[in-house]
């Protein structure tokens, strides 16, 4: 669409992409290389790239510990439910914001953003008190509901913005044919919003996967804890298990990478609003 595909433009873009990729990829590469080193060597000067004492022991240490594997299980479970619930709740809310004018809309819009402005650190004590009162302390439910609070504002804003880019005529067509609003939403708006849903879903997953403060505060037993807490448990009072921490982070990112690779296809240009009306 940008005119003829010229080879030198292609080369320029690839070079730019490769150079640009250093910024995100180099630190991760460094983390990856370090996860195979013995602890002291991680701080060696001059730094070593590939350790002579290269070892997969840090990875084995994690894989052989049922307690640590449980952290992964918990993180998956919680993230999964948070994604499912966030998507459904935010689609409904975004539909309201995008397709209706109603009293209080401005106030609600303001509120959804500003309620997140209270630093979580200050929320910690009253929030924990509330969770205890609701009998949710040390449950998955506490974390799932908490993460919904974090993810919904972005999800709603994004989905609203996204639905706003989809023409009203789309859903009106369904309703003229005798369909209900729910039908219009479910059969037309949701399928056309897939790229938006995927990005919101990715974001939600990351947010739930990576959260630390509440994961620690709202749980007390190790069988309820998540990967970020597990990583912090490797930071001792006196010394850190650097390589295991890094190995655990690398391991934690693999499934996310795979998910991401899988959902790639939804970013393909062409799944746009325009192409769906037949």
């Amino acid at each position: 669409m940008y005119g003829k595909k010229k080879w030198y433009i292609k080369m320029l873009i690839i070079i730019a992409l490769l150079l640009g990729a250093l910024f995100p990829a180099f630190p991760i590469l460094w983390m990856f290389l370090n996860s195979f080193k013995p602890n002291p060597e991680i701080f060696a000067w001059p730094p070593t790239w590939i350790s002579k004492a290269f070892s997969i022991r840090p990875y084995l240490a994690i894989l052989q510990s049922p307690e640590k594997l449980r952290f992964f299980f918990n993180s998956y479970l919680i993230s999964f439910f948070v994604v499912a619930l966030t998507l459904v709740i935010s689609i409904l809310a975004a539909y309201a914001f995008s397709r209706f004018e109603f009293p209080g809309k401005g106030i609600l819009n303001t509120m959804i953003i500003s309620v997140q402005a209270v630093p979580p650190i200050t929320l910690l004590i009253p929030y924990l008190g509330l969770v205890v009162t609701l009998r949710l302390y040390n449950t998955y439910g506490a974390l799932i509901l908490t993460y919904l609070l974090f993810t919904l504002p972005y999800a709603i804003l994004m989905m609203t913005a996204y639905m706003n880019t989809l023409p009203q005529e789309l859903d009106e067509a369904v309703m003229i044919d005798g369909g209900s609003r729910i039908k219009a939403l479910w059969y037309v708006l949701v399928p056309t919003s897939v790229p938006g849903l995927v990005s919101v879903g990715m974001y939600t997953f990351m947010r739930a996967w990576n959260e630390y403060l509440f994961a620690l505060t709202l749980t007390k037993t190790n069988d309820m804890r998540t990967v970020p807490v597990g990583i912090s448990l490797l930071m001792g009072q006196h010394a850190y298990e650097w390589n295991q921490m890094l190995a655990m982070s690398v391991m934690g990112s693999f499934p996310v990478l795979i998910l991401f690779l899988f959902f790639q296809k939804y970013f393909i240009a062409g799944m746009t609003a325009g192409s769906v009306k037949h």
Binding site: F81, N138, Y140, G141, M224
Partner: peptide, 14 residues
Amino acid sequence: LVVLAVLFSMSGTG
């Protein structure tokens, strides 16, 4: 999934 998630959230370990 959503129904499951809601049920799950409510059950908890207590």
